[in-house]
């Protein structure tokens, strides 16, 4: 019976062909893998594999260039938007996107991120926010929620000592230069389908020169949060979405 079903004409879902066979270095259940798949699928569907340039960050996604078969640049920590600006200005017909985590985008690279968005560079910035510094071992990030425990705030984030979490996507929505600002997640099949539409819209905006586009993906860090991947998704739904509300913040 199974052999009768496994035929090329019955195939409904497979690994995107732009994603190569290298095993990703991410921890089991990491949201990055799904985001990589969505990028690869969207570029493939738009037929832009020869025209896409990604800029990978410093952080967990530092090796993003290993997995998707398009052109890549590797930026210094937080400087991916600056490098993406240069790429887009030198090759205006290319699809240029930066791929950054919360430490890269909302901490060390805040100046580059906000100014690039405000200048209205025709690029897409993909910002994966898991509210923690994953690669370095689960320290508190600017995006860590109030009361959330990390290895550097073991009693929970206290605003009197650590300040408040930075909702940088809300800030970006108020900037003149941004064309499309959205916040999505990839914790369920339905959410992934919605996120894919956001990628398509942002990439189309970039190619049409409508301004800068920001896609925040609220993700999990099961290793840093010290939970199973399934539990981490549930925790994210219960706690993260109150502060990081899912949906389009701006669509010009």
């Amino acid at each position: 019976m199974t052999d009768e079903i496994i035929k090329p004409e019955n195939l409904v879902y497979k690994k995107p062909s732009l994603l190569n066979d290298e095993t990703m270095h991410y921890c089991p259940g990491c949201s990055h893998g799904v985001v990589h798949k969505l990028i690869a699928e969207t570029i493939e569907e738009m037929g832009l594999q020869e025209k896409a340039i990604g800029v990978s960050p410093v952080g967990c996604a530092v090796f993003a260039y290993r997995y998707i078969d398009i052109d890549w640049q590797e930026a210094a920590h937080g400087r991916a938007p600056a490098l993406a600006t240069a790429c887009k200005r030198l090759w205006p017909d290319r699809l240029v996107f930066s791929y950054q985590g919360d430490g890269d985008f909302a901490c060390i690279g805040t100046a580059e991120s906000l100014h690039t968005l405000n200048r209205g560079e025709h690029i897409t910035m993909i910002f994966v926010n898991n509210a923690i510094y994953g690669m370095t071992g689960g320290q508190m990030a600017p995006t860590t929620l109030v009361g959330m425990k990390t290895v550097t705030c073991p009693y929970g984030r206290d605003p009197r000592i650590h300040g408040y979490p930075l909702n940088i996507t809300e800030l970006a929505a108020h900037l003149e230069g941004t064309a499309y600002v959205t916040r999505q997640s990839v914790h369920s099949a339905a959410a992934i389908r919605r996120a894919k539409k956001a990628f398509r819209h942002a990439f189309e905006n970039s190619m049409q020169g409508k301004g800068s586009n920001l896609i925040e993906i609220v993700g999990t860090c099961s290793s840093g949060w010290k939970m199973t991947p399934v539990k981490a998704n549930q925790w994210m739904e219960e706690h993260m979405f109150d502060f990081y509300k899912i949906g389009d913040l701006k669509d010009k």
Binding site: I5, L11, Y13, P16, L19, H32, V34
Partner: peptide, 12 residues
Amino acid sequence: LVCPDACISVYR
């Protein structure tokens, strides 16, 4: 869709 490592092909 949810597999982060793209290890699953689906036939229908």
